[in-house]
Design a binder for these strands. Structure first.
Length: 866
RNA sequence: GCCGGGGUGGCGGAACUGGUAGACGCGCCGGACUCAAAAUCCGGUUCUGGAAACAGAGUGCGGGUUCGAUUCCCGCCCCCGGCACCA
């Protein structure tokens, strides 16, 4: 009797074997670059969630594929260990963030190990370790020295009750998350990194990132937002108001000026004008996030001040408008309501004049106010109107003529503007990397000397939600000024956690180096060959990492500019949501695991009840797995139930990696059934009687067909896993092949050898996804070596040759028949055979054939008159 | 609001370069095994009509290009991700 598939018995010994063999260690051989397969490291939130599980399975499949193809591979793992959730946990439970974080890491490391990932654990790192973050501090000081880091003020969310700075996430509908108090905007000094110095390079290098998804490159390009335009100065009472515009050609259509509420002119207007002051104050509440600002209703107020049009000399009113961002350009715009959507909306609301200065000249349509939307931002096939001497010029000529005129008058200059802003890295938080600065009354801001690094973060503090505990910790605060020796105080701000994650991949190769940030190994092993992580990181993290890598390159620490050769952005993991409303009408969410659902024949939900009380619950849609909807499925539970291979198999099979994945318990069941069947089928083959004779001898037609399918599958899986990363279709092909192979009954020694070849191929093809089962089956098939060393199956081209191919016959594009022909048949022959087909005849009989299209070995389309 | 992506059977998805829409899996229906159930195995399963052969319709909606469109173009609807202090 065959041993049934029992992952609880199979998986642990297999993992033990890999462990004993130290099978996942990346070899360090000078000059040799291992394939560097990197996953975005997890935030240690407490438990591994499905998103992690999916992410790391994808990289493990790629890692194991390359290992089986004979390449040394580095697949490391670490912890993005600083951040806000640790402080929230501390506030909620009174546990120091350090302890909470390290406990979580311990637990999650165990969970990762149970999944059998081929990770080189000897290189593990955590960003909260002083041995790691000391290099954040070291590089920050180098940047400060070179002027790449600098200090200026920035706007933050201020909770007036807790007297603390809030993250955007902590601002809900303009109110503090804990206090409910109306959030205020506040200006505070912060450190910034000059990422804008690299804007052009970061933009241009995107073209070379062939291994990145097009959409990520587009998003980054739009984020950097390079635009060619002009800086124009409008004279005002005692000076000038400078604006940036990409459309100087519309200058004659400017009817008012708009400045941000934080603009100096706005402040000036507020002096002695309580109404204006009140308006500015009202703009000072609510959060600072751009999404929030942009979604606000457009509001404004006339300052009573005017600016003189640099060409016409006309006086234009200056308005304060909440839709003008102080952080872009100069914080002021010339408003051309005729040709800008936002200006148009604003002008309409406040009754400001709207002048058309551009019109379409394509002669196709008449344009007027009724189809405003069609022409107001057009740049092609346009001419200037109502623009005096510039009438009749097209967009470019108008741009040039007006730019020249302004430059001549000294009222403007051509300039490139980026949307990208410098990266503010100061955070008024405890659980982060301390910024290594000392404040001295006499010497000012003094960098901590290199030999005093790292500035260690005290780990015993417990934040309470009101301000940083560092600012209250005398032991941390008090120090001596490195320059004059007088008593001084430490900077209490910590660094943005994006700093930690901007270079962690440079540290894995040299994690043991206590002397320097990176070394020869980093230079040898970079760039990362394949990076895998969530699409939500498409802009910020990836842009910061590209910037940081370039800074290190310019310091002579690295030879590469681009850190990530190829990028794969995985989709989210979704699950059903179920709820019931309580007395106050609030939704109470039930975990899908605790809901029993009854469906009709069409799959519609008939009845759903909570298992705990048998009372009905309502379907809330399919949503991203999240605590708030209580729809998370714990990978650990499933691994306990089905084993790691089944969970890995389902998550790779249910959807291609880039798409979102809908969790389904029934689908997991299906993956489990497939593995049981494969296990059974290989055992049946092993237990069958081996026919006598020469294994290299004659093969039946069935055997040749089976062999053709096996080699087609090898070709498809190799392409799907190695090039396309469509693991779902690779698995489907393996399932299809195993279904066929299990029906094949070898009757000769030659046939039996074909079956053996097939099963050995399938066990290896599925090995990157289900390594435990494959390792066990590989051993049963008589091999001593590790599945990682078993080699990837090779395609025998000779096995792929087919005697007949099916050609589809269409009449006027509709399929009317199929014919079998030898591959490579003549067009004429195929066409004639197609026209003789009985069903085809019915549709072409008595009609004149206008045209026949023949796609060799695939399709014939006969076009007949109607 | 701005930038990016997506929408295909009852469900997850496949169709890679414009060439058979629905591979593979789930679910469901029928059958075998069983005293019975579970598990397993076999068959069917886009919709409409038809016993079947076959015919008609069909890839969010409305148009277009083409011998041929899930795929390309134009307009719209809905959903999701990001928006600089969540990570």
């Amino acid at each position: 009797m065959t041993q049934p598939y029992d992952p609880a018995a199979i998986e642990p010994p297999v993992r033990q074997r890999w462990n004993d063999e130290d099978a996942f260690r990346a070899p360090d051989r000078p000059g040799e670059k291992p394939y560097y397969c990197l996953s975005m490291f997890p935030y240690p939130s407490g438990h591994l969630h499905m998103g992690h599980m999916r992410n790391y399975t994808i990289s493990d499949v790629i890692t194991r594929f390359h290992r089986m193809n004979g390449r040394p591979v580095l697949q490391p793992m670490g912890w993005d260990a600083f951040g806000l959730p640790a402080e929230n946990a501390a506030i909620a439970r009174g546990v120091p963030p350090a302890k909470w974080t390290r406990d979580n890491i311990r637990h999650m490391r165990g969970q990762l190990k149970e999944l059998g990932f081929a990770i080189d654990w000897s290189r593990e790192l955590a960003t909260c370790d002083p041995e790691y973050y000391r290099w954040n501090q070291w590089l920050f000081l180098k940047m400060l020295e070179k002027g790449i880091a600098y200090k200026k003020t920035g706007t933050v969310n201020w909770d007036p009750v807790d007297q603390t700075v809030l993250a955007n996430e902590q601002v809900i509908d303009g109110k503090g998350w804990r206090t409910g108090a109306e959030v205020e905007k506040r200006e505070i000094p912060m450190y910034y990194l000059r990422i804008t110095d690299y804007a052009d390079e970061l933009l241009e290098a995107l073209d070379g990132l062939d291994g990145w998804p097009e959409r990520v490159r587009t998003m980054q390009a739009n984020w950097i937002g390079k635009s060619e335009g002009m800086e124009i100065s409008f004279p005002v009472a005692d000076g000038e108001l400078t604006v940036f515009t990409t459309r100087p050609d519309t200058l004659m259509g400017a009817t008012y000026m708009a400045v941000a509420p934080e603009h100096p002119l706005a402040r000036k207007a507020a002096e002695g004008n309580p109404e204006v002051a009140e308006f500015i104050r009202s703009c000072g509440t609510g959060g600072v996030s751009e999404a929030e600002l942009a979604a606000q209703e457009k509001r404004g107020i006339d300052t009573g001040l005017t600016a003189r049009h640099p060409l016409t000399g006309e006086d234009l009113p200056i308005w304060i408008a909440n839709y003008v961002l102080m952080s872009y350009g100069s914080g002021a715009v010339m408003a051309v309501p005729g040709h800008d959507e936002r200006d148009f909306a604003f002008a309409n609301k406040y009754g400001l004049p709207i002048v058309q200065v551009v019109r379409l000249v394509d002669g196709q349509h008449e344009y007027d106010d009724s189809n405003w939307q069609d022409w107001y931002v057009a740049k092609e096939n346009v001419e200037l109107v109502n623009s005096g001497p510039y009438d009749g010029l097209d967009h470019q000529a108008g741009f040039d003529a007006i730019a020249d005129a302004l430059e001549e008058k000294g009222r403007g200059r051509r300039r490139t503007q980026f949307r990208l802003r410098d990266w503010g890295i100061s955070r008024q938080r405890y659980w982060g990397c301390p910024i290594p600065i000392i404040h001295c009354d006499d010497c000012g801001d003094v960098p901590v000397p290199e030999q005093d690094l790292p500035v260690r973060l005290p780990e015993h503090l417990v934040p309470d939600g009101s301000g940083s505990p560092l600012a209250k910790d005398e032991e941390f605060l008090s120090c001596e000024c490195p320059e004059c020796g007088a008593p001084a105080r430490r900077e209490t701000d910590t660094m943005d956690t994006f700093v930690d994650s901007s270079w962690y991949f440079l540290r894995y190769p040299c994690v043991d180096n206590e002397e320097s940030m990176v070394d020869r190994r980093t230079r040898d092993w970079m760039p990362v060959d394949q990076y895998i992580g969530g699409i939500e990181h498409a802009i910020l993290h990836l842009l910061y990492a590209r910037f940081w890598t370039r800074v290190m390159r310019d310091f002579g620490l690295l030879g590469t500019s681009e850190p990530f050769e190829r990028l794969l952005t995985q989709g989210m993991v979704l699950a059903e949501t179920w709820y019931r409303e309580d007395d106050q009408g609030r939704k109470v969410w039930f975990n899908p695991a605790g809901v029993d659902v009854e469906r009709d024949g069409k799959g519609n939900i008939v009845r759903a009840v909570a298992a705990e009380d048998g009372q009905p619950v309502h379907f809330g849609g399919i949503e991203k797995m999240a605590k708030s909807k209580n729809n998370g499925v714990d990978p650990a539970t499933l691994v306990g139930q089905y084993g790691a291979d089944t969970v890995r198999l389902f998550s790779m099979f249910a959807a291609p990696p880039e798409q979102s994945l809908e969790w389904s318990d029934a689908g997991v069941e299906g993956a489990w059934r497939f593995l049981k069947r494969l296990w059974q089928q290989v055992h049946e083959h092993l237990e069958a009687d081996v026919p006598d004779g020469d294994p290299g001898g004659e093969r039946s037609d069935e055997a040749l067909e089976a062999r053709r399918r096996v080699h087609e599958t090898i070709a498809k899986v190799t392409d799907d896993v190695g090039r396309r990363y469509t693991f779902n279709t690779a698995i489907a092909a393996i399932m299809e092949c195993s279904n066929h192979l299990s029906r094949f009954r070898p009757r000769s020694a030659g046939d039996f050898a074909v079956a053996r070849e097939g099963w050995e191929a399938l066990v290896r093809l599925i090995a990157p996804v289900t390594p435990h089962a494959s390792q066990a089956l590989w051993q049963k098939l008589g091999h001593e070596d590790s599945i990682l060393e078993a080699g990837w199956p090779a395609v025998d081209e000779a096995a792929l040759v087919q005697q007949q191919v099916t050609v589809v016959v269409q009449v006027n594009g509709k399929v009317r028949g199929r014919i079998e022909v030898p591959p490579g048949s003549d067009r004429e022959v195929v066409q004639q055979r197609a026209m003789q087909d009985e069903n085809v005849q019915r549709f072409i009989d008595g009609k004149s054939v206008r045209k026949v299209i023949v796609v060799p070995d695939k399709l014939v389309n006969i076009v007949v008159a109607a």
